[in-house]
Amino acid sequence: MDNYLNRMRQQITKRLDFIGRACMLFVEAVRFIPTLPKQWFRVIDHAFSMGYLTLPIVGVLSFFIGAVLALETGYSLANFAGAQRYLGNIVGLSMCQELGPVMTALLLAGRVGSSITAEIASMKVYQEVDALTTMNIPPARVLVMPRLVAIAFMMPILTIFSVIIGWYGGAVVSQHVDFIHLDPNIYWRGLKSLVEFESVWDGLVKAEIFGLLIVLIACNEGLRTQGGPREIGRAVTRAVVASMVAVLFLNYFITKIQL
């Protein structure tokens, strides 16, 4: 029993230590925002790899999420006469408030978070981070801050893209599947009637928080890596799992606040 309690205490201490270090890293990175004009090339580079190169996969994912959502909902509503005309409302609101931001964030955790952790962890293991420190160049300045700024710019773009493509996915299914066969005008009219600027804004706020959180966790996990190449793989796994759990956990509370 004591053993179990000790292990539990160690795990809790480890998690709290991780959160504390991540917060300190965030504060340290924010302190270097004034160096942004000198680092714009890094921000653009990261924005390209984290944002632009992620667009195609976000598009594919969002199209099918919108499509499946319309398909499942349309099938369920088929038994209720006339209920299918609310498909636009359902897909519209679900995509912009929940599915768009959350699915984009989960995809980002897998695609971008893993790559950031792998890159920084490998720099740590091969002493490149130590080299930076000996040059009096804090890693938070050149490795963390530009990535945070890049994701802050790109996350709203990715989310809006995801939401729009998801809406179109729903529209295509609503129009062409036999047991739904909804007039596109009704679909879009329904969508417009329920989706307001505030709904989209709430989704964007969520997405922004998720994006920053994912990059922060990925950078922190990378910078904490110690040992050999095997640790790089472990750090990546830890970062992706932690990001996904954090996104799902936070999503509940942010949604509750926004309601």
Partner: peptide, 12 residues
Amino acid sequence: TAMVFQSGALFN
């Protein structure tokens, strides 16, 4: 102060 690391620690 500068240090030459065993592995070189060059930015790859």
